[in-house]
Computed example of a mutant assay.
Amino acid sequence: MSARSSRRTTLSVMMIVRDEGDRIEASLQSVVGWASEIIVLDSGSTDGTIDIVSRYTDKLWVTDWPGYGPQRNRALNHCSGDWVLSIDADEVVTPELRDEIDRVLDESGCDFTVLKMPWKTFLFGRPLKHGRYTSPQAKLFRREGARYRDHQVHESLMMPRRKERVLNAPLEHYSWRNYQHVQEKHLKYGCLLAAQKFANGRRGSLAYAALRFGIDFLQQYLVRGGFLDGSRGFLMAVILGQYAFHKYAALWALEAENTMSSRKP
């Protein structure tokens, strides 16, 4: 259990979850007793997640699933702290990160509205040190006026005034349970993004999908230094290339399906 913080400001931790019973406890243990409150919205877990969460907080709501952006906004509406830390069930706040957050939030004249923290993302037991999954994440922000875009996936944080600071201590990120999970997760997100693009009038082609596979692979593996992570870096570059392919192939498929439907008598 986390040591209780002497921080002068109040801090809400919020989480949106579903069927995370195998890993949510480590995340909750990393913030209980340190956060001023823990807000959890569950969208229909059937694996014991709700029972686990109930041991750590009474601020738990079971809801439907409107998409990532709307669900985060629902959780945000329940938060009362001066600051909000939005984490997922696969993320763990280390003691070093807690201490750094406490120090920064108590600095006199602190006028930052967003605190970003590096991701320490683990792939098959070892952390990736290069590439997309090490980029600092805007997880901690002043609550007043903050909202998320109502996107189904990859929802971005909107602030009335945005001034960022990047922390040094990383947030541990255990995103994938196994190889099947990493593939399923990227395919799911790719299809959600395709639907979002299609609804906004975007169209795709298989040629562009194939081109994006190559571009995104090279971006991750060479430009962002993924090759320095050895076999894991190569695998991650392939996965991100596949992710880009999924997005635009799914977009092409939606257009094809729509054309077929319109031709039916």
Score class of each variant (00 low, 15 high):
Ala146Tyr: 03
Ala199Glu: 15
Arg142Leu: 07
Arg74Val: 01
Gly226Leu: 04
Ile101Cys: 01
Glu184Ser: 09
Gln183Asp: 12
Arg143Cys: 01
Asn200Ser: 15
Ser80Ile: 06
Leu28Trp: 01
Ser231Glu: 12
Ser27Thr: 14
Ala250His: 04
Leu228Met: 11
Gly204Ser: 13
Leu193Lys: 14
Leu60Val: 10
Ala89Gln: 05
Glu107Ser: 09
Ala194Arg: 07
Ala26Asn: 03
Gly33Arg: 08
Asn77Cys: 08
Gly230Asp: 07
Cys191Lys: 15
Ala35Gly: 00
Leu171Trp: 01
Asp216Phe: 11
Ser135Arg: 11
Cys110Tyr: 04
Arg161Ser: 14
Trp119Asn: 06
Val182Phe: 11
Met15Val: 07
Leu228Thr: 08
Ala209Tyr: 06
Arg232Val: 00
Glu257Tyr: 12
Val84Met: 09
Asp88Val: 02
Val32Gly: 00
Lys120Met: 13
Gln220Leu: 02
Gly226Met: 03
Arg203Met: 11
Ser30Thr: 01
Arg161Gln: 15
Met14Gly: 00
Met1Val: 09
Leu157His: 12
Thr9Asn: 13
Val17Leu: 09
Lys116Glu: 12
Ile215Met: 12
Ser175Pro: 06
Ser43Ile: 03
Glu155Arg: 12
Leu115Ile: 09
Phe122Met: 08
Ala250Met: 11
Glu255Thr: 10
Pro66His: 02
Met260Val: 15
Ser2Asn: 10
Asp22Ser: 11
Lys163Met: 11
Arg203Val: 12
Leu211Asp: 10
Asp102Phe: 05
Val17Arg: 05
Arg232Tyr: 04
Arg98His: 03
Asp58Ile: 04
Gly225Tyr: 09
Phe198Trp: 14
Val53Phe: 02
Thr46Ala: 15
